[in-house]
Amino acid sequence: MSSVENDNQKGKGEKEKAGGKKDLIRDWVILALSVIGAVVLLSFFPAKVDPTITTSKNYLVEMAWILPAVMILMGLFKVWVSKEMVIKYLGKASGLKGILIAALLGATPTGPLYVAFPLAAAMIDKGARILNIVVFLSAWACIKIPQEMIEIQFLGLKFMATRLVLTVLLVSVMGLVIEKIIENTGSISPELE
């Protein structure tokens, strides 16, 4: 992999800054409201307090381990991977090969779906086509080799294989539909940059 100069899109960044602060405040307010909501709800169901807190705590620990690393990977991707490279392999002209690359990229790592969102946004930013992003996210969500193994074990090979084939087909169609809709109604404008 060669490191080609990539443009910084400074203008875009500055434009987004103004709205960013407001959004951030809104997000913290929503968080405060959901915590208050949770506390009120739990005060009516004292038996649910323990399982809820245990789950939240486990989840928080998991997030704390994964999220910073994911952000670093995304940052490295943004700085080092050139627009030309993403356009070549995942852009408009990438065709069937692009879909396959997107599916492989999505199916290889393991980890919760939220990990894939920042990576998807970075790829869109660099010129990947929407179809491939949908395939990437769907593959990340539901095509995982260890997962397929468990599926065979509990539901049988026929069930797993049929579901896998149908999923790949329908996800590709869905990707095309989403791409058409987004192209016909203007840009996607991801907030995170």
Binding site: S34, K48, Y59, Y114
Partner: peptide, 12 residues
């Protein structure tokens, strides 16, 4: 927010 939501979901 998701941490809170997931906790409630699995708790209930």
């Amino acid at each position: 927010i998701i941490v809170v939501l997931v906790g409630l979901l699995l708790g209930f």
